[in-house]
C-alpha cells in the first residue's frame, strides 16, 4: 500500500513459524497481517465478500436446475459450434476459458516486472491481459448473440426449463461485468505505469495519495479471482 513504508531502524525480532507465528501476529499490536499493506488487505476482504455473491448466484442456479420438473437443455448441444461440417461441443467456451487462463499468466508476469520497475514490459503485459479480457468479453457477446438468435430469452427457450436462459444470462452477465471492470482498471493502471506515476510517486486524481507499483499486484489479485470464478462457472454451468 501507498503509505505503509517499513521503518527499518529497528531490526524486528525473529517471528515464530507456522501456527505459532499466526497466533503471535494476531496477538501483537498494530497489524494482524504483518507485511500486508492496507490496499492488499482490503482487496482480499473484498474478494471474500464477492465470493459470497458468486456462491449465492451459483447455489441459486443449482437449486433451480436440480428442482426443475421440465428437462434442462443439454449444454453440450446448446453451446456447440459447427465448424466446417463438424459439430464440436463447447468449442467456443473452451477457447474462452483458454484465453482467460492465459490472461492470468500475462498478469502474473506484469506483477513481476512491476516490482522490477520495468515500466514498458509491465504496461505491455497489462495491456496484453486487458486485450485477452476484452477478447473474452467479445466472445461472450458473440455467444449471447448466437443464443438470442436461436430463441433463448431470460424468460424462456425452445428446449426446456426457462431458468436455463435466466441463470445463463444472469451469471455470465455478472461475471462479464466483472471482467469488463477489470479491463478498464488494467488499462487505467497500465497508463499510469507507462507514464511513470509510480516512479515519481505522483498523487492520485481522486484520493491525492501517492501511487506505488503494488497497485499492479492488487489489480492482479482481482484479475486472478475473476479467472477463478470463471473456472467454477465453467464447471458448474457448462460441464454439469
Amino acid at each position: 500500500m501507498a503509505e505503509t513504508v517499513l521503518i527499518n531502524q529497528v531490526e524486528p525480532p525473529a517471528r515464530p513459524a507456522g501456527w505459532r507465528g499466526i497466533a503471535a501476529d494476531w496477538s501483537s499490536d498494530q497489524r494482524a497481517f504483518k507485511n500486508v499493506s492496507w490496499g492488499k488487505a482490503m482487496m482480499w476482504i473484498f474478494l471474500l465478500s464477492d465470493t459470497f455473491i458468486f456462491s449465492c448466484f451459483l447455489l441459486a442456479y443449482m437449486t433451480a436446475r436440480m428442482s426443475t420438473t421440465v428437462p434442462w437443455p443439454n449444454p453440450s448441444e446448446v453451446f456447440a459450434l459447427t465448424i466446417g461440417d463438424k459439430n464440436i461441443p463447447l468449442i467456443l467456451i473452451a477457447i474462452m476459458t483458454f484465453i482467460l487462463i492465459s490472461s492470468s499468466g500475462t498478469m502474473a508476469m506484469a506483477v513481476n516486472f512491476g516490482y522490477r520497475r520495468d515500466r514498458v514490459k509491465t504496461a505491455a503485459l497489462m495491456l496484453a491481459t486487458a486485450a485477452f479480457g476484452a477478447t473474452f468479453v467479445g466472445m461472450q457477446a458473440f455467444e449471447w448473440t448466437k443464443l438470442i438468435m436461436e430463441g433463448v430469452r431470460p424468460w424462456g427457450n425452445p428446449w426446456g426449463a426457462a431458468q436455463f436462459g435466466s441463470s445463463f444470462f444472469m451469471i455470465t452477465g455478472f461475471h462479464g461485468t466483472h471482467v469488463t471492470i477489470g479491463v478498464i482498471f488494467l488499462i487505467a493502471i497500465a497508463r499510469k505505469v507507462l507514464r511513470g506515476d509510480f516512479d515519481v510517486e505522483r498523487r492520485g486524481f481522486f484520493t491525492s495519495r501517492k501511487g506505488h507499483y503494488e497497485i499492479v499486484e492488487i489489480t492482479g489479485l482481482y484479475w486472478h479471482f475473476v479467472d477463478l470464478v470463471w473456472v467454477f462457472i465453467f464447471a458448474l454451468f457448462y460441464l454439469w
Binding site: 494476531w26 499490536d29 498494530q30 497489524r31 494482524a32 497481517f33 500486508v36 488487505a41 476482504i45 473484498f46
Partner: peptide
C-alpha cells in the same frame, strides 16, 4: 472494508486486539 482493515491493520503501537 474500511472498518475491517482499519481494525486489523491500522492500530496504534501497543494496541493489541
Amino acid at each position: 472494508l474500511n472498518y475491517v482493515v482499519t481494525v486489523l491493520q491500522a492500530r496504534t503501537r501497543g494496541m493489541t486486539l
